[in-house]
């Protein structure tokens, strides 16, 4: 297990290295640190002096290692627009996005597993066909269009749900985390964004669970479990589902990471003050440092999620567990 963990961590470090390299080259080619500090209207001398002072005339490799050193210490540069350290800006926006992603991930898990398994067990039933049909349609509707339709129906026509913002927030941990989970208004604001975000991934998950489950149901050990006279419930949930879980975890982990990217669209529509909306604004404003910081933070998040997923996989799959133990 420890060897397995170390290997995973090493891989994670390599991936982070690649991400930092891309981030650095982005900043190096696209960004202009001098402009970030002084704005456009400064003389050429000031500019040159600043370049020298900031070390922009140093060899690239030296600059990269400086970037890396700063990044490891949590210094990802200053945001041009906010005039604050980029990391600080990101941390202040992160709770909103994380709450949204968490709610959607929860919804996806709770809905996709029963739907996928049901339609795998009874592929010919009407309900299975409906589930599959709806999920095909779901895959084909862009997330922002779902969001717009929701607003049009529930906010404009019916007036049931608020169309933008996060509602009433409750500060937690001395104000570092503002949560919308604790007030009715916060939850009401959360319903549509999380539904929209869920709608983009849920169909994929249902299909994934269904495909895997159908494959497992073909296996000999399922037939054998029947031959042993076990109950249907035990066959499906213990024998088949456990084996379905493994591939679903690996693919699912990656896909959940992708949810974060889709928050860009969802948050834009619902004016949700999170990382996605911030990212869109940063691109509009050409706030390179913030972009790079976002990329590094989100990249790190992906790497963490993937590593955790792999470790969970290792714990569920007896083969990895034992190989690691040796």
């Amino acid at each position: 297990m420890i060897a397995f963990l170390i290997r995973r961590l090493l891989q994670a470090c390599i991936v982070m290295g690649v991400i930092s390299l891309i981030g650095f080259s982005l900043r190096h080619t696209v960004g202009d640190p001098v402009r970030e500090m002084y704005g456009m209207s400064v003389s050429a001398e000031v500019r040159a002096e600043a370049r020298e002072r900031l070390g922009l005339n140093d060899p690239i490799i030296v600059q990269y290692f400086r970037f890396l050193k700063n990044a490891v210490q949590g210094d990802l540069g200053n945001s041009l627009f906010y005039q604050k350290p980029a990391l600080e800006v990101i941390l202040s926006k992160a709770p909103a996005t994380l709450e949204l992603v968490f709610t959607s991930a929860l919804l996806i898990t709770l809905l996709s597993v029963p739907c996928g398994i049901y339609s795998a067990i009874h592929p010919r039933r009407l309900l299975s066909r409906i589930i599959l049909g709806v999920s095909t349609v779901g895959v084909s509707v862009p997330v922002f269009f779902t969001a717009l339709m929701c607003i049009s129906l529930f906010s404009i026509t019916l007036g049931w749900l608020p169309s933008f913002g996060r509602g009433e927030l409750t500060p937690l941990f001395g104000g570092a985390w503002e949560t919308g989970f604790l007030t009715w208004s916060g939850i009401k604001h959360l319903i549509m964004p999380s539904f929209a975000l869920t709608s983009i991934m849920l169909p994929l998950f249902i299909r994934l669970v269904r495909a895997e489950m159908m494959e497992v149901l073909q296996m000999d050990y399922v037939k054998y479990a029947r031959a042993k006279g076990l109950s249907e419930r035990r066959i499906y949930w213990v024998h088949a589902f456990r084996n379905t879980l493994l591939p679903v975890i690996t693919v699912g982990g990656v896909q959940l990471g992708i949810l974060i990217a889709f928050t860009i669209l969802t948050e834009t529509v619902f004016n949700w003050k999170g990382l996605g909306g911030m990212f869109k604004e940063a691109v509009d404003r050409g706030d390179t440092s913030l972009l790079v910081a976002y990329m590094v933070v989100v990249g790190a998040l992906f790497v963490v999620v993937n590593t955790v997923v792999d470790v969970i996989y290792g714990m569920v799959n007896p083969m990895v567990r034992v190989v690691g133990r040796k």
């Binding site: 050990y221 054998y224 024998h239 456990r242 084996n243 493994l246 083969m319």
Partner: peptide, 10 residues
Amino acid sequence: DPMMTLNPVL
């Protein structure tokens, strides 16, 4: 096939 008969995760 005893390789396929026993459930690998139990």
